[in-house]
């Protein structure tokens, strides 16, 4: 397909792109509207305006001062960090081992992990929640432990891709140079594979930040940001809630756009893309 630079011949393309852009931007626009349009204007008319009749930071200020936001956000942050950390703690050794045992055997394990991963969250979450209650884990630690289930297969797969891309002689060289396995891991393999590890961490982090099912079932009170947001929404404190939603959505959007490069470049092929 040649680069077609003339506007005219590309007109259908631009029209299509424009329509799709509108479809995909509109919900975000609504979020911005709810956040920045003065609440009374929205409240008074049952049919909220599509074009902002005014502009205010009041909703945001109100949200931050009246709602107790620091709790859920901090907890979400901790949980996301724990999930990211667990992904690495379990995923790096597993990926290392999978890279060693031969591709055919490794594939069987990966299929197993992904198959388990397809188990509906709610099916697993309810018995976990009942058991965790007995163990005193009906809190964010329990949530982190459960959310790890969602991201572990993917993390292993991404890190495995990184390991597969490394020349195996680097590890051998380190062994020959007198390093034992932990030292080789720490000094050679992990630094060499840091981009895959970083992507795995970020995706785990993002998934946890977004995760709702496990969070609401395992720790319905003193929970993470999505659960808190859900509570606010059901209690109809929408304007503050939306301000809240917008401000904490922005960083994650940035991460997503950054990760777009990886997603588009098909780098998640277990190190086997052409």
């Amino acid at each position: 397909m040649s680069v077609n630079s003339s506007w005219k011949s590309n007109l259908p393309l631009y029209i299509g792109a424009l329509i799709l852009s509108i479809i995909f931007f509109y919900p975000l626009y609504v979020l911005i509207l709810i956040t920045f349009v003065p609440a009374p204007l929205n409240n008074l008319s049952p049919y909220p305006p599509q074009i902002p009749p005014g502009f205010t930071f009041y909703n945001i200020i109100q949200a931050y001062s009246s709602l107790n936001l620091t709790g859920p956000v901090t907890r979400s942050f901790y949980v996301a960090m724990m999930v990211g950390g667990l992904s690495l703690a379990l995923g790096i050794p597993a990926a290392y081992g999978l890279n060693k045992i031969g591709v055919r055997t490794a594939n069987k394990f990966i299929i197993f992990f992904f198959l388990i991963n397809m188990m509906p969250g709610i099916v697993v979450a309810i018995p976990i929640s009942v058991e965790f209650l007995k163990l005193g884990l009906s809190n964010i630690y329990g949530v982190a432990l459960a959310q790890e289930l969602v991201v572990l297969p993917l993390s292993i797969f991404i890190i495995l891709g990184g390991f597969r891309a490394l020349p195996s002689d680097l590890e051998n060289q380190a062994r020959v140079d007198g390093a034992n396995l932990p030292t080789t891991m720490y000094r050679i393999l992990i630094p060499m594979n840091r981009s895959a590890i970083l992507v795995a961490f970020l995706l785990s982090w993002m998934t946890s930040w977004d995760e709702f099912t496990y969070a609401v079932i395992i720790s319905p009170v003193k929970s993470t940001f999505p659960v808190q947001l859900y509570n606010y929404v059901t209690r109809a404190v929408s304007f503050e809630a939306s301000a809240f939603a917008l401000t904490f959505t922005i960083p994650v959007i940035i991460v997503a756009v950054v990760l777009q490069k990886y997603l588009k470049s098909q780098s998640f092929t277990g190190g086997l893309s052409s």
Binding site: L28, A245, V252
Partner: peptide, 21 residues
């Protein structure tokens, strides 16, 4: 590409909230 990928980064609950509005 960036514009259409943005929703991927949005929390499901946030997205649900927007559509409920």
């Amino acid at each position: 590409s960036s514009l259409v990928i943005i929703p991927y980064g949005i929390s499901t609950v946030v997205s649900a909230f927007i559509f409920s509005q």
